[in-house]
Amino acid sequence: MMKKIIDNIINPNLITLILYGLLSLVCLVTYVWWFSFVWEFIFSVTHYIIGLLVTLGIGLNISYTIDKKHGTKLKRYILVSLAQLIIIWTVANPIRTWQIESSKNKARLIIESLETYKMQYDNYPTSLAELGNKLNLVLPNRTNIGTKYLYTMYSNKNYSLAFTSYYGYMASYNNEQGEWGFTD
């Protein structure tokens, strides 16, 4: 029985590759998602991409050598992960753009409520909780990316509404100019 399991691992059939593919997909998506917010890890976001490619390249070379020497089919695992990574990176930018834009759109309710509050009370609230309580509103507190909206009142005329975006960038709304900007 154990010999059959080991043989199925070193010479994977379709079911084994599907199970591996599911596990690999979860790991790769988690890895890419996590590193999308900690781009300063080591030097830049490029390093996690290069690191994955180098790791997969080394794995492909090792598995190819083992396959050739022992007649196994280990390189199939690496090829599955490589194909998944290419698909993840292909869809990541459009999804990232959509999430940032939809998070900014979601913030419009907060921004409009801040302006309504200012008109009614002649100044901005000290917190989003105060804003929601005084206007009897349930305001979004998290973006579509999952990060929190951060509100800071600077004076009766200025405030900042911000959220952490991908690659460690901070998206900030400038109420004087009515625009969003990104800083790192």
Rank of each mutant, 00 (worst) to 15 (best):
M1V: 14
K4A: 11
I5G: 03
I6S: 06
N8S: 15
I9C: 03
T16Q: 06
I18D: 05
I18P: 02
Y20G: 01
G21C: 04
L22E: 00
L22K: 02
L23W: 10
S24C: 06
S24W: 01
L25T: 05
L25N: 01
V26Y: 12
C27E: 04
C27Y: 10
C27H: 04
L28R: 02
L28V: 09
Y31L: 10
V32A: 09
V32D: 09
F35T: 14
F35E: 08
S36Q: 13
V38S: 15
V38H: 15
V38R: 15
V38P: 01
W39I: 06
E40I: 15
I42A: 15
T46E: 15
I49R: 05
I49P: 01
L52Q: 08
L53D: 12
V54E: 13
L56H: 09
G57Q: 12
G59R: 04
I62Q: 06
T65C: 05
T65P: 00
T65I: 13
D67W: 11
D67G: 09
K68V: 03
K69P: 00
H70A: 04
G71E: 05
G71T: 06
K73T: 08
K75Y: 13
V80P: 00
S81D: 03
S81R: 05
L82V: 02
L82K: 00
I86V: 14
I86Q: 05
I87E: 03
I88K: 02
T90M: 11
A92W: 11
N93G: 07
P94W: 09
I95F: 09
T97N: 12
S102E: 13
S103I: 02
N105S: 11
K106D: 05
L109K: 08
I110M: 01
I111C: 06
I111M: 05
S113D: 04
T116W: 01
Y117V: 02
Y117R: 06
Q120G: 00
Q120S: 09
Y121I: 01
Y121G: 00
D122L: 08
Y124N: 04
Y124C: 03
Y124W: 10
P125E: 03
S127N: 08
S127V: 11
L128I: 13
A129Y: 13
A129N: 10
G132W: 05
N133E: 14
N133Y: 14
L135I: 02
L135R: 03
N136Q: 11
N136R: 07
N136F: 11
L137K: 08
R142P: 00
N144R: 10
K148S: 14
K148R: 15
K148W: 10
Y149W: 05
L150D: 07
M153Q: 15
M153C: 11
N156G: 13
N156D: 15
K157A: 14
S160Q: 12
F163E: 03
T164P: 01
Y166G: 00
Y166Q: 00
Y167V: 04
Y169D: 08
M170L: 15
M170S: 10
A171S: 09
A171T: 08
A171G: 00
S172C: 12
N174W: 06
N175M: 09
N175V: 08
E176M: 13
E176N: 14
Q177L: 13
Q177R: 14
E179A: 07
W180C: 07
W180E: 10
D184L: 15
